[in-house]
Amino acid sequence: ATNIVSKVKWYNSTKNFGFIEQDNGGKDVFVHKSAVDAAGLHSLEEGQDVIFDLEEKQGKAYAVNLRIK
């Protein structure tokens, strides 16, 4: 899926990962520091509106092509 609009559930800049809620009630989506860095960001804030693409690797959903709404 591409261009999903949602909100950051939480992000831990010390552990370099977090999760984004899915508005459709699906499972929370993992977001890694590499996606945050690629977006030119230093961190994410809880409740922040984001747009991302969903990529599945080894049966897990990852946020990629992250951008701020």
Rank of each mutant, 00 (worst) to 15 (best):
D49F: 15
E21R: 15
A35C: 05
A61E: 10
Q58L: 12
A35R: 04
K57E: 08
D37H: 14
N3W: 07
K57I: 11
V50Y: 03
K9A: 04
L44H: 02
L54W: 05
K33A: 10
K60E: 06
L41F: 10
K57C: 13
G59W: 04
N3F: 07
T2R: 12
H32Q: 03
S34N: 10
G47S: 05
N16W: 08
F52A: 02
G18S: 01
V64N: 05
V29Y: 12
K15Q: 07
K57L: 10
F30D: 00
E56G: 07
L41E: 06
K15A: 08
K60N: 08
I20R: 00
D28W: 05
I68D: 07
E56P: 03
E21W: 15
G26Y: 10
I4L: 12
N12M: 08
F19W: 11
V29Q: 02
W10Y: 07
V36T: 03
A1R: 14
V36L: 15
L66G: 00
E46I: 14
A1K: 14
L44E: 00
A1S: 12
R67G: 04
V64P: 01
F17V: 03
D28G: 06
F30I: 04
Q58D: 15
N65C: 06
A38G: 07
I68G: 06
E55P: 00
I20A: 02
K7N: 05
N12H: 09
E56V: 15
I51R: 04
K60D: 05
V50E: 00
Q22S: 15
D23V: 15
D49Y: 15
Y11A: 00
S34W: 10
V29S: 02
T2K: 14
Y62R: 08
I4F: 07
V31M: 04
E55T: 09
L41R: 05
I51W: 09
F19H: 02
D23R: 15
K9P: 01
G26D: 10
I20S: 01
S6H: 05
V5T: 11
N24A: 11
D53N: 06
S43V: 11
N12L: 08
F52Q: 01
H42N: 12
W10Q: 02
F19N: 01
Y11I: 01
K27A: 12
L54D: 00
K57H: 12
K60C: 10
N3E: 07
V31W: 02
F52N: 00
N12A: 07
D23F: 15
Q58E: 13
K60I: 08
V8R: 00
L44D: 00
S13D: 09
V31G: 02
G47M: 05
G25D: 09
V36A: 03
L66E: 02
S43R: 12
N65P: 00
I4G: 06
D28Y: 05
S13Y: 11
L44R: 01
L44A: 00
G18N: 01
A35P: 01
A63P: 01
K33D: 01
K57P: 03
S34A: 09
G59C: 07
G25T: 08
F17K: 02
D53S: 05
K27C: 10
K15F: 11
T2P: 06
G26T: 09
G40Y: 06
D23K: 15
V50F: 03
I20K: 01
S13A: 13
V36I: 11
L41Y: 09
G59H: 06
Y11Q: 00
V64T: 11
Q22T: 13
K60G: 07
Q48S: 08
D28R: 04
N3H: 08
A38D: 08
K15C: 11
A63K: 01
G40E: 06
L41T: 05
K15G: 05
I68C: 09
E55Q: 11
K7Q: 06
G25C: 10
G25E: 09
S6F: 06
L54G: 00
D49V: 15
H32S: 07
L66Y: 00
V8L: 04
A39N: 03
D49C: 15
V36Y: 03
K69W: 14
F17C: 04
S34D: 07
N65T: 02
G40N: 09
N24F: 11
G40R: 07
S43N: 12
E45F: 15
G59P: 01
K57T: 10
V29T: 06
D49G: 12
K33Y: 07
N3T: 08
Y62L: 05
G59R: 05
S43W: 12
K7P: 03
T2H: 12
G59E: 06
K60A: 08
L54N: 02
K33P: 02
H42D: 12
S43I: 11
Q22C: 14
G26I: 09
V29A: 05
I20G: 00
L54F: 07
D49A: 14
A38W: 07
Q58F: 14
N16D: 04
E45K: 14
A61L: 14
A38N: 08
V50P: 00
A39Q: 03
S6W: 09
K27V: 10
K15L: 15
